[in-house]
Design a protein around this nucleic acid. Structure first.
Length: 803
DNA sequence: TCAAAATCAATTTTT
DNA sequence: TTGATTTTGA
């Protein structure tokens, strides 16, 4: 008996050892699912199965990385690197990179992230002369995405009576047309969006029997993690791939299906038994993660849902403490409570920062938490939100690389054609786009033949220079690798220099980000050179016969993988920080102490998901996921009132709270105990005022980075909280204003009601009030020359004269 | 053509 | 309250 089987319970062992034929592992939360999956792969390899013949699909890069790492540990060698372990998206992207030409795409196709997709939709809607207010990119893209995930093409979409009815009812009848135009525009651009990576993979397998057969024989063993989250395309693809050998093992927990908005159907896991003959089902019901109390609460809540695979999780763990439900007055109090409690737990019970997680339903809720943690000087990290590669400066830079790699990429071209400014203005761009559309040629082609289309002399020259520059970069690929080319791009375009010269805080951060990007490319290139260049079956590098092609492939592969990367995938060196994330992002993770915050009706469950039973059940599953993240301590918090777009709103505590069995819940915090005494008005007014005067840069725009303790956060300069002295009599000064000689703007932090100021343009005036807004302060000012005005405080133009 | 100012729009979850 | 987008004015 191999010793990697030691330490597995009976069910887990069975799941590992059943290697042949279809297998479904129903794995409850915290039941050691990853362990089973990885042991299973290791076992297959120990039995002599070649790593090349194993395909493991996950939903996140993180899960994939974790699996690889564990397998290497078990095997004690490097064999694992030959495994195909990755997300659906990344594995398929990799395959498509070699096969896309069969579908008419360039093998160097670009992957569009949702921002690119939306931009294309916007352009299409505009061109079709549709109402942009009505056809919002988000909504349209959502609809198209749903269609793609359900394997519905533009034509089928258009011909489907019910779909058309739905679109009519929401008075968006043109979606079918937009879908069609969007798809062909992406195709023309040589680009695939996220959904295409799945859809085109399916088309590939479905259209080319020889390709299908090749991959069927390559992937003799298929494992799929989080099977409950698969959507119809993913389902069809895996079904095709598994058809020859039927060595398919799916792992999932129907109780944790929380991605239906992305097209996932829980049906896939519920029906798995009917898809193959002799499906073996193994249930993992022992939980190794949580205390008895936490588990019991989770079980009780989830059992309210109907139609699940029956299972009852149990644990040998300690009884544990009751779940604490905490009410606070406002969202800020809630944040304060959480921060205070974390400090207290650290002191009393010797927890580390890294033992805590704060989970919320929506990303917007992170703000209040962030603020309170910062005040207390507790280091934290936010997961989710914008990934590094989605930041503007990074996307701009990458757009150059995208164009070099694939000149058909119109979105990237549009980004950089006049960045940095080179005199190709809006008019010229519009014109080129129109020519491209009418002649059905690419934007790039128009640019290369600009002379034919009668641009203004200046613009023409600029365009030609631009085209030459891109071509020069392309030629560099002949004997330079992706990193060297990127460095040249930075130099030639002056992007790096410009950013370097921008000495503002944001400018500095942008400069550093670009440097980091260059480093990341370097790292990638170095890694590549260490890896074996040729896959056994030639998936990765077909037709590589010269250095040029290799460099180009390398650049393309780099671009491909970064679009599929999320922020959470970056492992940070210092992990001992409080973690903030959405519940969705927390799936698959565990923490000793968990705070679930904002557990209120209309937030959780979300107001958008209380209309049907199905939606509500999904929210409940999400709650189940949240609760089962906790190992030993669990806090559930809600606030009586919170700010929502500037206005105070009130929510009832979530129904999920009352669904928890009372004997496991500690309510003593809910009755507004000492923790909840609202701050007196002075205090909160002080806080509010301070917030008003805090510049964003003080907080560092980069919220994803580990925040330094005492990073200079504190109320800016001295500012009196006391009432200002009686307003001075206001005396008109002059009618037409001549700025004072040596006009020097005042510091933004200091503008406040009661002051007399000088505005560069409007002259002297008196500040009546300042409201809002750390980022958008607006002042009402009475000007001598032209009366009362509401102005956004453009500090460059304001000077305090008195007060 | 660009920055500043004014207006508008959004708020679920993510590969 | 924010941020993004459009309009504006030089």
């Amino acid at each position: 008996m191999q010793d990697y089987l030691n330490g597995l319970n009976e069910q887990q062992r069975e799941a590992v050892l059943t290697t042949d034929g279809p297998l479904m592992i129903v794995a409850g939360a915290g039941s050691g699912k990853t362990k089973v999956l990885t042991t299973r792969i290791a076992h297959l390899m120990a039995k002599g199965v070649d790593a090349f013949n194993i395909l493991a699909l996950t939903f996140t890069n993180k899960a994939a990385a974790e699996m690889k790492e564990r397998i290497e540990k078990i095997l004690g060698n490097n064999e694992a690197r030959n495994l195909y372990i990755g997300t659906f998206h990344s594995v398929f992207a990799r395959i498509l990179r070699a096969e896309a030409h069969r579908l008419g795409y360039p093998n160097s196709f670009t992957i569009y992230d949702s921002e690119d997709s939306k931009s294309v939709i916007k352009a299409v809607v505009r061109e079709m002369n549709l109402d942009e207010k009505h056809y919002k990119p988000n909504i349209v893209l959502g609809r198209i995405s749903q269609a793609k995930n359900a394997l519905v093409g533009p034509l089928e979409y258009k011909n489907d009576f019910q779909l058309q009815q739905e679109d009519m009812r929401s008075s968006r009848p043109a979606i079918a047309e937009i879908y069609k135009a969007y798809a062909s525009r992406c195709f023309k651009n040589g680009a695939m969006d996220f959904d295409d990576l799945l859809l085109k993979m399916y088309e590939l397998l479905n259209t080319f029997p020889e390709v299908l057969s090749r991959f069927q024989h390559k992937f003799k063993y298929i494992l799929i993690d989080e099977y409950q989250d698969t959507n119809p395309v993913q389902y069809q693809i895996t079904k095709l791939l598994a058809a020859a050998n039927e060595n398919i093992c799916v792992v999932g927990d129907d109780a944790q299906s929380i991605y239906s908005f992305r097209g996932a159907t829980i049906e896939n896991i519920l029906q798995f038994k009917n898809d193959y003959d002799d499906v073996k089902v193994v249930k993992l019901e022992q939980n190794y993660r949580s205390t008895k109390k936490i588990l019991h609460v989770a079980n009780t809540v989830i059992n309210i849902n109907k139609g699940q695979i029956p299972k009852e999780l149990w644990t040998d763990n300690l009884e544990g403490e009751k779940i604490r439900v905490v009410r606070s007055m406002t969202d800020n109090d809630e944040g304060k409570f959480v921060a205070d409690t974390i400090s207290e737990e650290e002191l009393r019970n010797h927890f580390n920062h890294g033992d805590f997680a704060i989970l919320y339903r929506t990303n917007a809720q992170s703000r209040a938490m962030e603020e309170s943690l910062r005040r207390r000087g507790i280091p934290y990290r936010i997961f989710g939100g914008l990934s590094f590669y989605q930041r503007k400066e990074i996307k701009d830079f990458i757009a150059y690389l995208r164009v070099i790699s694939n000149t058909r990429d119109e979105e990237a071209l549009k980004r950089i054609i006049n960045y940095p400014v080179r005199g190709i203005g809006k008019t010229s761009i519009e014109k080129a786009l129109i020519v491209a559309n009418e002649g059905n040629i690419t934007f790039w082609e128009v640019l290369t033949k600009a002379a034919q289309y009668g641009f203004r002399a200046g613009a023409l020259e600029a365009i030609n220079k631009f085209v030459l520059m891109i071509q020069y970069f392309q030629s560099l690929l002949r004997d330079k690798n992706a990193h060297e080319v990127a460095v040249q791009v930075g130099k030639h375009t002056n992007i790096v220099k410009d950013l370097f010269n921008d000495k503002t805080t944001e400018g500095l951060a942008r400069y550093e980000n670009v440097q980091e990007l260059l480093n990341s490319i370097k790292g990638w290139v170095d890694d590549q050179e260490n890896l074996s260049q040729i896959d056994e079956d030639g998936i990765l590098l077909d037709n590589v016969d010269n250095r040029n092609a290799q460099n180009a492939m390398s650049l393309g592969a780099y671009l491909q993988q970064i679009t599929l990367l999320t922020d959470a995938d970056k492992d940070e060196e210092n992990d001992n920080v409080v973690k903030l994330m959405t519940i969705h992002a927390a799936k698959g993770l565990e923490f000793p102490v968990v705070f679930v915050v904002g557990v209120e009706e209309s937030i959780f469950p979300s107001a958008m998901s209380i209309n049907t039973r199905e939606e509500l059940e999904e929210e409940r599953r999400l709650y189940y996921v949240a609760v089962t993240r906790a190992k030993s301590k669990l806090w559930i918090t809600y606030a009586n009132s919170r700010y929502k777009f500037g206005t105070v709103t009130q929510n009832d505590p979530s129904r999920f709270i009352s669904e928890m069995p009372a004997e496991y819940v500690d309510n003593s915090y809910s009755g507004a105990g000492h923790f909840n005494v609202p701050q007196n008005n002075m205090g909160s007014a002080y806080e509010r005022m301070n917030r008003t005067y805090t510049k964003k840069s003080d907080f560092s725009a980069d919220s994803t980075n580990y925040n330094k303790v005492n990073s200079g956060f504190s109320a800016p300069a001295k500012k009196s909280v006391l009432p200002t002295q009686a307003p001075k009599q206001y005396t008109p000064v002059q009618k037409i204003h001549q700025p004072t000689v040596n006009f020097v703007a005042s510091s933004p932090a200091l503008i406040e009601a009661g002051q007399t100021i000088e505005h560069q343009k409007f002259g002297f005036g008196k500040v009546l009030s300042v409201d809002g807004a750390s980022h958008n302060p607006i002042a009402t000012i009475a000007f001598a020359a032209n009366g009362e005005k509401k102005l956004m405080l453009n500090y460059a133009k304001l000077r305090i004269v008195e007060g």
